[in-house]
Design a protein around this nucleic acid. Structure first.
Lengths: 195, 195
DNA sequence: TTCATTTCTTGTCATATGACAAGTCTTTTC
DNA sequence: GAAAAGACTTGTCATATGACAAGAAATGAA
């Protein structure tokens, strides 16, 4: 997987002249993480926006009982980053951890500022990233209210079946806001009914 | 309460020349709602951004059991609007309803576009509104994970005591993601301990 | 004032979910 | 290949929360 994935991703989001696109892409650097390693810990300031090109990353926080609760599971061709921390220079409120071995391309804060400064088109990119994150979070909140754990499970299974190949059910369960025990029971029910 | 509240609010968010600020404020129009009336219903496209200057508004969605779940309680000096719908012209995903009699000043979509178009400073305003909404939602999600219903209750009581004067406990309970029954029991426990 | 409506509390009861633990099966490591 | 670690399922049991209903208190309307 080469840097062309980065350019493809940029072009899928905003309309930008090829030359400028390449200039920005040239600022991205390759990075690798082993399964279980942390990309960003709660309290740190995010200085790199990682575009995930291979593997899976999750974000999580620790609840009142000390349990890790997964708040997102990031698949390739998406950013793994706390953008509020990145843009505002504030401590991140969540942790980011590799679920599997991962490869990313990241752009440092200064290089992103350079892009914003010299290419006004890229301001649009920053706005779009924030909007997409907001929409995702909003969807997630609504889904938590409007659908049962079983519905959320089935919906994830349909929308993102690959995740189930790479991510332990314990993590998926906590992402669905239930225990692995409960998820296991849901799966039994579903398979009993579904065939 | 006059339009100066609108100007004050704008100035609190962005740095803008007085003349341009006044020009934008002049586009705001006065509006009133009676207790219980809907400001925006799920499925409609939001065409007006209402700045609440008096009263309380809530947003809510309907869960799988048909129950209304309050997702935010809006106090004066804040916008009551689905900005994703407003900016993108998509159907709103939530309902907005007056909890008490309300007064607002709103700016129509076209007037907002006019401001964006003629005054680049106001683009910053749009970005800030989205960012603030995102942060609020994120905080809310984290609080739901990291704190018990009782902690959320005490925290709201401390941060926004006025709300308890104006908003029925049933609505506050659903905002805290519990039933009014549960909230009542929490209140009993707290008052038993607290004095 | 009086009656009706809404709000809030409290009791009983049912149930979904989690805690815990045991056991199977798979994957990794040396 | 053997041992260890991790992943997943399943059973028992405890408990927090919700459903429901009744009653008290407050609010509003006629």
């Amino acid at each position: 997987m080469s840097k062309s994935a980065v350019l493809d991703y940029l072009k899928s989001l905003i309309d930008v002249p090829a030359i400028k696109g390449k200039l920005v892409v040239s600022r991205f650097k390759h990075f690798e993480l082993k399964k279980g390693e942390m990309l960003l810990a709660e309290g740190q300031v995010s200085r790199r926006a990682h575009l995930l090109v291979e593997g899976y990353i999750r974000s999580f926080v620790v609840d009142s009982e000390g349990e890790e609760v997964t708040t997102s599971i990031i698949s390739p061709q998406a950013f793994a980053n706390d953008f509020l921390s990145y843009f505002k220079g504030e401590p991140a409120k969540e942790n980011f951890q590799a679920i599997t071995d991962c490869k990313t391309y990241y752009i440092g804060y200064d290089d992103m500022q350079f892009a914003f400064h010299n290419m006004p088109e890229f301001r649009e990119f920053g706005r779009m990233i924030l909007t997409m994150n907001y929409e995702r979070l909003h969807e997630q909140m609504l889904s938590m209210i409007k659908h049962s754990a079983e519905e959320r499970y089935l919906s994830l299974l349909e929308k993102d079946p690959e995740i189930f190949q790479a991510v332990p059910l314990k993590i998926i369960a906590s992402y669905l806001n239930i225990t692995d025990t409960s998820l296991s029971r849901i799966r039994r029910e579903v398979s009993k009914r579904g065939g």
